[in-house]
Amino acid sequence: MWVNNRINIICFLFAMSFNANSSTPSGISLSASILGNNWTGQNTTSGTDFEASEGKQFAYSAAYHYGKFFAGLNVQGGTYEFGAKAPDRITTTGSISNSNVKIKRSELDLVAGYFITNRISIFLDIKGTNNNWLDENYEQAFSGFGLGVYTAWPLSDKWSLKGSLGVISNGIVKVNDEEAGEGTSSSLDIGAMYNVSSKGKINFGIKASSQTYKFDSGQEQTHSITGVYVGYSHSFTLN
């Protein structure tokens, strides 16, 4: 139910953006990025750490901008390999330690935002994350509704700094599609953008995100994904 309500809010923001004055500038931006990042974490209850030996993600997003409003979709994902230190498979009844596993991580973000000043916007994000243990019948899912702040700060005609900070304070954790607990998520993105043309820009930076899953069994697991990314964004002006 709570997800439906939040989707309604996002849809409302979409509708607001479409109903605004027709002379308002609008455009679409499409982005693709590669994230070379590291996935670390902690199985709190068992007191063990884990760290992926290799992994990266690809991200694709599309955003619609209408004046001060923007809204869009981001999908990203990648496969990580863990050696001796791997995340436990935690369920409502207990946990199983792992080693030498591959986990496919995928993320989906449905975002709507509004620039409250020329440089600072606030945005809402309905986020879904899936951690799928390949070769194992185990899947963690996290979903939640968060609030974030996003800024882009021009340094010159070519260069801008950008950053975002977001928090999801009351997410839901599911295991194999069964609700198994609750969780929180936070992320910090600091980067820069370089305009290669009037419509294209390269962006790069560091992004760190952390999720904490608190299972109904009393166990806890944290996931931290930190790394660098580089991407290209292209914009199409509609009016």
């Binding site: 609008s26 990025s33 997003s61 599309a62 869009g72 975002v111 020329n118 994000d125 882009a152 914009s235």
Partner: peptide, 16 residues
């Protein structure tokens, strides 16, 4: 115009 409006439209989508 050159530093604010066009860049705002060009911004990639923020995510969490």
């Amino acid at each position: 115009e050159t530093q604010v409006k066009p860049k705002r439209n060009l911004l990639p989508l923020p995510t969490m």
